[in-house]
Design a protein around this nucleic acid. Structure first.
Lengths: 210, 210
DNA sequence: CGCTAATCTAGAACAAGTTACAGACTTGAT
DNA sequence: ATCAAGTCTGTAACTTGTTCTAGATTAGCG
């Protein structure tokens, strides 16, 4: 049913043919599958190409580097997550609760495929200037998810700053968890801590506000 | 004067001879110099070895991977920074101000050698489990710097959480700046925003408190 | 259909991180 | 001073990301 929900993501893309769309999908799937097995290192370009039934040169035509490929994989997964989350919005009373609930839900999803998470997050933070547009897309998706959870249609600049800081914390906390330097509980605490910033920047919330 | 201020950093190290200490230093200096020129990519193990006047195998004996080398380089630089900062403590009135002042000072230092910053920060966030101990050392150093700025001798668990979130934001904001996705001004805002968490967790500060 | 440009394939080649190894040099203990 | 163990050097080989090339296929168009 959700056949073409990425159409508006890259308006610069020159409209792929059906076979090309299929190739792209095979590549992304192969990437995710290899990543789920062995993390970042297991996503080897030759293996991705073979698993996707595509020549190495073609793989590089679609994704100009391993980092591009993995960031695109992350885009793909985030999209899933976003639609999933929209179906069951968080139930918390205030925005801070809803955001941390949402992020913890995402976190639990990542825990189910820690190796995949490893590959995607490492690629994301390792990406250099050449991948900025793609990384930015991921960032915008993440922002959208958080704003959704907050229920902020027209966020103030202050709220946007808070969201940025939440994103920073989210990425960095994931990294500490993935590299075994922080426990799941620790990540939870960090997320809840940073979400307190939302209350701090809330513009007169509550029923009797204004 | 500050001849041996890293003695207590790695009690597990098996006491190097003088020549070995000198080799280690030459390697770290070569690493920092190459990094300052061309960032992460310019730190090539063969070149580091040559610049340090050491065989490739020896380089790998001292630092088992490029990531280890760059994380150690970061340790080294952080140490400098810490002693520098201790000389002129931040002047702000409340802890949040002092911490953001300190971090902004560190940020300005990094701006002077953006390529070096790139190499170190990318290595830090790309490091996997095998480098955890070293990355942890860097993290502890950073924590110490922040706690120093806060003036918190015996931080509460809540305060420690805030510090962790500040560190997350610090690292991730640096990355967005290094990859050209955020301006210097943006980083400043993010740091100031996250530092507000400190007030939130302050245990009865000020003379007339409680 | 037949042409042309773009795309795809297979495979070689190159770059840089990492490993392996044989022989020379240091170190520390006796 | 001498010996054993450990360290360092120089160099080649291996791995995986990336680039390149020549020829086959495909897509769009008249």
């Amino acid at each position: 049913m959700t056949a073409d929900n990425r159409a508006d993501l890259s308006p610069s893309a020159p409209a792929l043919t059906e076979r090309q769309e299929a190739r792209r999908r095979r590549i992304l799937d192969a990437s995710a599958q290899l990543a789920a097995r062995g993390g970042f290192d297991a996503v080897q370009m030759r293996e991705v190409a073979e698993a996707a039934g595509v020549a190495l040169g073609t793989l590089y035509r679609y994704f100009p580097s391993k980092i591009h490929l993995l960031v695109a994989t992350m885009q793909d997964q985030l999209q899933h997550m976003h639609t999933t989350l929209r179906k069951r919005p968080p139930a918390g009373a205030d925005p801070a609760e809803r955001v941390s609930e949402t992020l913890m839900r995402a976190f639990r999803a990542l825990q189910r495929e820690p190796q995949l998470a490893d590959a995607m997050v490492r690629a994301l933070t390792f990406a250099d200037r050449g991948v900025s547009p793609e990384v930015d897309t991921v960032s915008r998706l993440t922002t959208a998810i958080i704003l959704d959870a907050m229920g902020a249609e027209h966020p103030s600049p202050e709220q946007l700053s808070a969201v940025r800081v939440i994103e920073h914390t989210w990425h960095s906390a994931l990294i500490t968890w993935l590299s075994g330097r922080a426990s799941i509980a620790q990540v939870k605490i960090d997320i809840e801590t940073v979400c307190r910033l939302i209350d701090l920047t809330a513009p007169a919330t509550g029923p009797a506000a204004r």
